[in-house]
Design a protein around this nucleic acid. Structure first.
Lengths: 188, 188
DNA sequence: CTTTAAATTTGATTTACATCACACTTAAAA
DNA sequence: TTTTAAGTGTGATGTAAATCAAATTTAAAG
């Protein structure tokens, strides 16, 4: 896992062995069973998670119990309720493991400390969120501009690997449609 | 304008006079007439803009000429096509002044140089985009989970000032509905 | 002030997708 | 294996919002 994590960081920042050991000391590894819940609505969110193994969903749960998937995470992705984590608001999202998972946990305070002490990490996190922001913009365009079929095709093209790992009901909920509609459009 | 810009930066990073002068040297002031176009679809996007005065829209233009507003900008906000700017993709957005505007222009290369040379600015830009990302998450939840009326109410609550400055057709396009639908729900 | 254009409202009709209901299939427990 | 549950597919019906079509109000330009 550590080598995988180091490779992940070195995609954006070059660091030496000593620096990596120091960075790693801020992260706490954690194993989670399928269906484990990392964040529930209303929680104070002090952690974000880097996924070494497994697959998770972050969703908004409606009054009637239906849910909308806000984002997924799998190997090498990060996940949290970022509105709550960055802005110290109560969580609006529910984050749950869709498979058994292994993650590295980072607290907000440690993140800030790491950024202050290591410019390489401040750069890393800045670049990381720039990428996430750009991806979010694309998703928004897709949601505002495309019908269900087009959004599904865009999703398949963007996340072919996810399509094989998560149920169709969950993909439907990511696309903002019902599972019935997805079933109908997916064999067009 | 310079004092306004300095106050904007000092909301997140403390800087001295010398640093501010250095920072400012990277920004180029520009005056723009209403209807000026800053970015067109397909452009290479090398600049982002900090708004000192005025109001702009960033929109995605559909094949039939209809548009979806991806974001607005007004005093103290930043705007660009961030997918294109950060990821060096061709622009998908169209950015246009809704009023006469005054902006400060920053090139991508200067942004990176500034971040490398001044940790305060790397911190500033990281915090800035963390906030923008959190706001984007809220918008996504609103789009996926609410009907037209609820989204309009959320918009009014979040951006009361914008509501007074931009036309209803444009607000409708931000909400992902038609102007007719907005007209019907807005006097409910 | 007058003319022309842009923005908004209102009504009638259509449509994409949701909802409801149930059959069927696959996977996980007992 | 049998049982129970979770996931998927398909039809019938309902509905929020889109579309089409004017009418009206507001703003800009001559």
């Amino acid at each position: 896992m550590n080598e995988q994590f180091r490779a992940h960081i070195e995609k954006l920042s070059t660091i030496n062995d000593e620096q990596f050991d120091y960075i790693l000391s801020f992260f706490k590894p954690k194993k989670l069973k399928k269906h484990s819940i990392l964040i529930s609505e209303g929680d104070t969110v002090s952690y974000e998670y880097w996924v070494a193994k497994g697959c998770l969903k972050a969703s908004y749960v409606l009054q009637d119990g239906k849910e909308r998937i806000i984002r997924f995470a799998m190997e090498d992705w990060w996940i949290s309720d970022y509105d709550a984590y960055f802005k110290k608001n109560p969580a609006t999202l529910h984050i749950e493991c869709l498979e058994d998972c292994e993650v590295l946990v980072l607290s907000f305070d440690d993140r800030e400390k790491l950024c202050k002490e290591l410019p390489e990490m401040e750069y890393f996190f800045r670049k990381k969120i720039e990428g996430a922001y750009a991806a979010f913009q694309k998703r928004l365009i897709s949601l505002l501009s495309s019908d269900a079929k087009e959004r599904y095709d865009f999703f398949l093209q963007q996340y072919p690997m996810l399509h094989k790992r998560v149920s169709k009901s969950i993909i439907a909920s990511y696309l903002g449609i019902t599972r019935e509609t997805l079933s109908r459009i997916s064999n067009l």
